[in-house]
Design a protein around this nucleic acid. Structure first.
Length: 464
DNA sequence: GGAACTCGCCAC
DNA sequence: AAACGTGGCGAGTTCC
């Protein structure tokens, strides 16, 4: 696929963007080298303990006996061979090339306790070797200088490398603590993270102009994910405090996958798997009703009482919700998808609202997803450029240090915090919309701040 | 002995 | 009828 700026403005965005990002790279991000070294040693001890425990197990001994030569239990091909060829375990999921999978989901499902140890070791090695080790390797005088590229991603987003600062663990609490605990502001400074609120959905609304979607992203009191959770889990009322976990399931298991082009079958399965994590207080386990042929899941009394008594029935239920989602809730969005796809098929390219043309061979999902991804990032890039200009002109001690597609991270001088927050909010929520009139919905940002001299782990939401 | 591939897994 | 978008990176493995 090839991409071209079609306007001077589009060219200028990348030109200015590269300069702003390069200043950010030069600035760098402080890491605590002593912390990383001691954490690394700690992880190594933990890994060794688990390795020894694993090597002591009957599982390992049988595996070792069944093949010639030394086995490497970190090798997925070797593990796959042992599980599926020697032990004749039924294949639950295949990889892209048709081999029996050895990913986390599959190994967990096999219910072999030793494999849980192996998964734990994998997790700890990932933290040590991918994150901590790369910070140590890349740091110079306690600062890392990740690259931020504008020329590598097909959808016109950015990428980051050496080290990649766009995939630092966040969702898993323990992994988050270990990795983000290495990242600090400069002495006597604070880390400030500014996040565009659901900007991809907002930008989608600018393309498809769906009236319901516009209402959802324009009204802070409306809540699309809660509304979908009510439908999916057959709730009459949505109680924020006790149903938040269901809102997350609806958001990550249905709404986003549907927007990305997934279908009800995968969505139903996604959400069914998420149920394992639900608190008992909300979902009492049913009478051991097994859902589907291989997922050992239990339905709650609640769903059973609503007549959803099996995985198949749940899938059917989600199928109806999907139909309603596109036919009745977001019909204009659905129509836009078809129009947009037809235009691509006719001309062989798509034009983004930011003045870029994307042409080449694309699948339907790619054609439909590219505009929101690329354009949303362009919004962030425009803001970074403007903030960078003001930062230079006003000689801020505060610096921009990182960026993750829809958020930007500052290393802030506390004396400048109030001013920085005011400027950032003005650029992101007001100036951007004045510059790009095609943004027909309000944009909002959320901010998180770490205390002075504390790591990235300590950040907390602020009302600013 | 290095390039290129597969697989798994972290982020948005 | 078919069915999830974009990256980077480490480890193991195979190709040349």
């Amino acid at each position: 696929m090839n991409f071209n700026p079609r306007t001077d403005e589009a060219y200028q965005l990348l030109h200015d963007g590269i300069l702003a990002l390069s200043r950010m790279e030069q600035q760098g991000i402080r890491v605590d080298v002593d912390y990383i070294e001691s954490k690394k040693a700690h992880l190594t001890r933990k890994i060794e303990r688990l390795e020894n425990q694993f090597k002591d197990s009957d599982f390992f001994k049988h595996w070792q006996k069944s093949v010639k030569g030394e086995i490497n239990f970190y090798s997925n091909p070797q593990l796959s061979n042992y599980l599926y060829k020697i032990k004749k375990v039924k294949v639950f999921k295949e990889t892209m090339s048709g081999q029996g999978s050895t990913d986390k989901e599959t190994l967990t499902q096999l219910n072999i306790p030793e494999l849980d140890d192996l998964l734990k070791i994998r997790n700890l090695k990932k933290l040590r070797d991918t994150y901590l080790e790369s910070y140590l390797r890349e740091q110079v005088n306690g600062y890392i200088h990740p690259f931020f590229n504008l020329h590598l991603v097909v959808t016109y987003r950015s990428s980051s490398s050496n080290p990649n600062l766009q995939n630092v663990p966040k969702r898993d609490e323990e992994s988050m603590q270990i990795c983000r605990g290495a990242i600090y502001p400069r002495p006597e400074h604070q880390l400030l993270e500014v996040d565009f609120k659901s900007i991809e959905v907002s930008i989608n609304a600018c393309y498809n102009k769906d009236s319901t979607l516009i209402k959802y992203v324009s009204n802070p009191k409306s809540d699309m994910h809660a509304d979908m959770a009510k439908e999916i889990f057959a709730l009459d009322e949505f109680q924020k405090d006790c149903h938040n976990v269901l809102r997350q399931a609806a958001k990550n298991g249905f709404v986003f996958p549907e927007f990305y082009g997934d279908y009800y079958g995968n969505c139903a399965e996604n959400m069914a798997c998420g149920w394992g994590k639900l608190p008992q207080s909300i979902w009492k386990k049913g009478e051991g009703v097994e859902i589907g042929s291989f997922i050992p899941l239990f339905l709650s009394d609640h769903l059973i009482s609503k007549g959803i008594t099996s995985f198949n029935k749940f899938t059917n239920h989600v199928k109806k919700i999907e139909q309603d989602f596109w036919e009745n809730r977001f019909p204009e969005y659905a129509a836009w998808k078809e129009r947009w796809w037809s235009l691509y098929k006719k001309y062989g390219y798509i034009d983004l609202l930011t003045g870029f043309r994307c042409q080449g061979v694309m699948s339907k999902n790619e054609v439909i997803n590219t505009p929101a991804q690329g354009t949303a990032f362009h919004c962030l890039l425009w803001c970074i450029i403007e903030i960078d200009k003001i930062m230079l002109k006003e000689r801020w001690d505060t610096k921009i240090i990182s960026q993750v597609h829809d958020s930007v991270i500052f290393d802030v001088n506390p004396g400048e915090l109030d001013h920085v927050v005011k400027v950032v909010r003005k650029i992101c929520c007001e100036e951007l919309r004045k510059a790009w009139k095609w943004i027909i919905v309000p944009l909002d940002v959320e901010m998180e701040l770490s205390p002075v001299d504390k790591s990235w782990v300590e950040k907390e939401k602020i009302n600013a």
